[in-house]
Each structure stands twice: as C-alpha cells, then as structure tokens.
Design a protein around this nucleic acid. Sequence first.
DNA 1: TGTTAGCACTCGACTCGTTAGAGTGCTAAC
DNA 2: GTTAGCACTCTAACGAGTCGAGTGCTAACA
Lengths: 350, 350
Amino acid sequence: MTLDDRKKKILLAIIKTYLETGEPVGSRTISKIEGLSLSSATIRNEMADLVEMGYIIQPHTSAGRIPSDKGYRFYVDQLMAEKEEDIAERERHTDEMQSMLVEKADKMERLLQQVARSLSANTNYAAMISAPRYNVNRLKFIQLSRMEENRIVAVIVLEGNMIKNQIIDIEEPIDDETLLALNMLLNTTLNGMAIEDINLSIISKMKQKAGEQAGIISEVIDAVAASIREDDEDLEIYTSGANNIFKYPELADNEKASGIISAFEEKKQLTDLVYETLSHSDERGIQVYIGEESPVENMKDCSVVTATYELDEGIHGTIGIIGPKRMDYDKVLSTIKNLTAELDKMFKKN
Amino acid sequence: MTLDDRKKKILLAIIKTYLETGEPVGSRTISKIEGLSLSSATIRNEMADLVEMGYIIQPHTSAGRIPSDKGYRFYVDQLMAEKEEDIAERERHTDEMQSMLVEKADKMERLLQQVARSLSANTNYAAMISAPRYNVNRLKFIQLSRMEENRIVAVIVLEGNMIKNQIIDIEEPIDDETLLALNMLLNTTLNGMAIEDINLSIISKMKQKAGEQAGIISEVIDAVAASIREDDEDLEIYTSGANNIFKYPELADNEKASGIISAFEEKKQLTDLVYETLSHSDERGIQVYIGEESPVENMKDCSVVTATYELDEGIHGTIGIIGPKRMDYDKVLSTIKNLTAELDKMFKKN
DNA sequence: TGTTAGCACTCGACTCGTTAGAGTGCTAAC
DNA sequence: GTTAGCACTCTAACGAGTCGAGTGCTAACA
C-alpha cells in the first residue's frame, strides 16, 4: 500500500487536529474540517489503511485515532521541508520573538540561565541549554599566581572569555622570578592553541625551555590539562521549566514524571543528549527526536527538539526543548531557530 | 484541658504508628500496641480530647486519626530533647553512616554534589546543600592580570579557597607597572579583611595611595565588590533526589509536585531557605520546619530539616532535607547530625 | 470502481446504588 | 475512671446500567 496524496492530506489533518485538541480524532471531525470534502465513511476507510501502515494508532476499538511515532516523524519531516523552502519564515515570526528579550548579561552563566528561562516560558515546555563546549576551544591566556607558600592558582581564560581556575599544590616553593618566567613561557607557547593540540611534543619542548623548572612546569601543565578535561566531563547545563511537564497529563503520571525530573536534576543524561546532538548536527543544526528515537532513556515518552548555537568558530553549545510528543512543533522549531540565530548574532558581535 | 502523661504517651504512639504505616491510625491499633493497657474505648476518649486540643486530625468521621502540624511539632521537640540527652546517640548510628562515604573530592563543587546525592540516597527524601556563604568570609588574595588591551581579569581568592573571577573593562589601557603596583596595593590593604568591612574610608584611603591611578582603582574595587555581592545573591546550591517526592503519594499529585520541583529548579526559594536557616541557627544548628512552618511557600505540605555546617570559623553552609510531613525524623536527624559532624571534621583537617 | 449512507456494534467514561469494613461516639454497666 | 456493646458514619470497592463517540461493514449509488 502506498501513501498517496489523499492519505497524506488526511494524515496531516489528523495530526494537526490532535496537536490542537490533545484528544483522539474521529473520522467525522476530519470529514468536516477538510478542504477535500469526503464523507466520514471514506475517511474511515483511509484511516483503517493508515493504521495498517503504522502512521496512526487507535487506543481502543471505538476511539478516534492518534498519531504514532512514525506519524509524528512524517509530520515533522514535512514541516521541516516546508520551512526549508519558506525563507521568509523567520521574518514572519520575528515579532513573537521580541518578547523573548534575552537580556544581555555580563556573565555567561547568567545569560544561559536567562535563555533557558525564556525558552521554557515561551513554549510551555521544559528547556535546557548547555554551555559551549570547551575542548574545541582555544587558550587565550594563562596566569599563574602564588597563593600560599607552595600553592599556586592557575587562571585559564579560553576564547569566548570562559574562565577556569585551578589550585595547584606544588612540591617545593617557587620564587617570584620563576613564576614570572613560567607565565611568560606558558603564554608565549600556548596562547591561541586549541586544547586538543597541546600534545606531548609541545610539552616536552616547553620542559626543555624551562630548564631546571621542568618539574614544576609539567606539574602545572598536567593540572591545567586535567582542569580542562574534567570540566569537559560534566558540562555545565542550565535548565528551566521542568515543572511544565505537569501541564501534559500524558507525562504527568508518577513514573514518567519522576524519570524526566531525575534526568533534569542529575544532568548526566542531558550531557549525553548534548554530545549526541553535537556529533549529529547537520547543516541546519536542528534535530527532532520523537518518542523512542530519543537518545535519553527517560525521555522515551517525550519529544526532544535540539539545536546547536555557535559561540565562535567551532565552538558550539546545545539548546534543547523537552515536551510531550504532541508538542507544537511548528512553534518550537520557529522559536528555537530564531533563538539560535539571535545567540549567534550576539556572540559574533562580542 | 492539659496534656497529661497518658495523653502524651497515646499521642506519641499515634504518631509513631502513623510514621510507620502512613495510614490513619484507629483506637484499636493503639490499644493493642501500647504498653499501658487500655481498652480502645478509653483510647477513643483520649483521642477525642487530642483532636480538640489540635494535636491530631480526623480526615473524616469514621476514619482513624493523623497527626496535625502541632502534633508533629510535639513529637519532634520530644525527639530532639531526647537526642540532646543521649550523647551516645551518635555512636549508635555510626555504622549506618559508614555507607554514606563522602568520597573526598578535590573540587568543592564535586564534594557538595556528592554530599547531596548521598543524603538523598540514604534518606529517600530530596536533599540540598548550599556552598558556604561568602560574605562573612575574608579576602585571601587578589590578582589582577591583563587579558587584552583594556580588559583585565580579577581573580579573587577567599578564605577556604573559594575562587571567583571577574572580567573588568577599563576606560583606558593600563601598563604593566601600574598593574603591578595596583596588585601590591590591593593585596597589602585588603588581605585578611572581611568583605563587609571594606568600607568607603578604606577605599578612599586606597585611592589616595593610588595617586593618579585613583580612577582605575575605584573601577576595580567596584567590580570586585560587585562580583562578590552578586554571587552572594545567587548562592550555589546543589540538589539531589527531587524525584524522591514521587514516592510519597501525599506529595505526588500534580500541583504539589510541580511546586516542589520548581522550587528545586529555580533555586531562588532554596536560597531563601538557606538564609532563613543561617539567621536562625541556634546552638545545635539543626532546625525542623513542619508544614506551614516552612519558610518556603511551595513546601507547605512538606517537612524541611536543615542544618548548618562549618567550613571555617564563621563560614557556614546549609544542608536541607525535604520530605513528607510523615518523614522518619529520627533517622533524618541522626543522618544530618552525623553528616554535619563529618563535614566539620573534614574541613577542619584541610 | 470509488464513494457514501445507514446501521449495528464496541468500548470507555460516567452515574448510581449496594456492600463491606473500619472506626467512631455514645450509653450504660462495672 | 474504665470498659463493653452497639448503632451510626463514611470511604473504598464493586457491578449494573446508561450515554455517546466512533468504528466497521454492507448495500446502494454515480
């Protein structure tokens, strides 16, 4: 059986109606709404086919139909194809976006938290945003300072003004002069380098140059590397509106809600989601996971829409919206598309 | 009517039974369990009195009784008085605590997250822990470094090795020498001072010393002060096990759960809780808020147990456990008491 | 051959009455 | 002051009955 044009139209009508009402839709409803005027009986026949083909489901014999994951997938693909063509799309939604007003914040964390909040408030779904990923980032500046007798603090500034600190305990005290020299050495050698490119050969070269301070320099470099790597593991993630899930009965029962909440709290699973997204990001950067498609176990009953934004050349972060499968994909896609654009613009300007 | 000895015994029996079963307890149950052997009819009479006095509630005419907030309050006060006397208490529970094993973490944040996790896992309630409060803290070390032409980064280390960063944009470029001088000036003047004690007179004295750099120094000091103050507003708080609330049906309905979850996510309300706790901490440092007593609006249906721990002289943080009113107060109090002791010990050693 | 009207059928949601059981409150006796 | 006894109350659980939405099928129609 093939999905001919009429079937497509009916399927889309069913899904759209369901998205609006949240209740199983019957043949009568479709026959009335539809442009192509067909009787409910005809619709029923087609619906039976669609069930057989797996696009829709009937919860029980005498109920209407609801979209299956496959049905949603069809709808979303359709939607995204449309958007692709419709370049003026962005304009059309611009006015809505005004209200999103991401206040400019001096601190990155503030900004990200702000974004998450505004996303969840605008969409009525749960939202998350990850801080830009460091390990594709470049070192901008390193500063070692003595804090105590044999304890120094390393301040590491990355491109994009991400700052990280690391306290380093050193074996033997270090004098001011050496410290200064070390600072010089570190900065001249490492500035502008991508973290991943700092390899053994460079380190050994530095050790050579450091001469008698070789011991200390390796201690310091190890600590710096560890600090960056460690942070990479547990990515900073900001969330907002997790409680929005209670607005959707199909997610609000104890077990499901508990799973989703714990995913939001533990962050671990969100981190996985971010990595998944970053590794699969296509040209548009937007991805939609429907139900079982979700890479996060606890979100198998949700739909997850993610997008990447660009802080700077090659430095990406991830935005995510988590809601029920019957989410307003159209609105979410527009919102998220505009937001990433806005973020990109903001960062580029900086 | 007075709460005589027999009434007390009956009340305690009712509460204990309710804590175990979670269901309204009837006169028959008490008459059987109780050491003082009285018939159910007698118990009934006493129970009627207890209802009148407000210690217990009957959900409806032909149901058993459940404790009221006032009843819980009586129980908890009793319990805490007992504990006070029983100094060997701590020993008795020590073995349970072994399993809590707070792994030593190098980073404070890791440690705190760890503690929260272990608390929630051990108690089956939701747990939170706040990072130690800064504003009673002392400056240990300030380091200004030039990052770009007219942008410097200030690294502020506080007693207890809390590190904060602040990027400062300055009007006009600053040369190395001036920067060095500024660093000297800042450190010699401010080191060891409590943040709150940095007042106008000190600042103006510094400006005087700075001479022509007066402009820059006030910029810097303002920025430093702002950085510390700002961070004080949104205290770092780590949470774990928020989804535990779903284990208790009386908290798991949509509305209540949503409120609690949002309190956990937004952190704002937890921050209030921390301040409330810190300002009211008595000699023991442990506080129990039952139902309506809670300073957090969204937790009026919960009980909240908080305690302060000491990072260093005068630097406190707060631990909190949030659960249903029928929580196992005995266990929670023991757990939290041991944990704070453990934390205190760990920090003192450092 | 595709479309449609008509109709019997299905099934969940809701209502209502019944029952069982737990627990009370009161009274009268000890 | 305590207790046995008993009528009473209220909820939870169950089942029967009803309603309505929606289906699936059949037969007629274009």
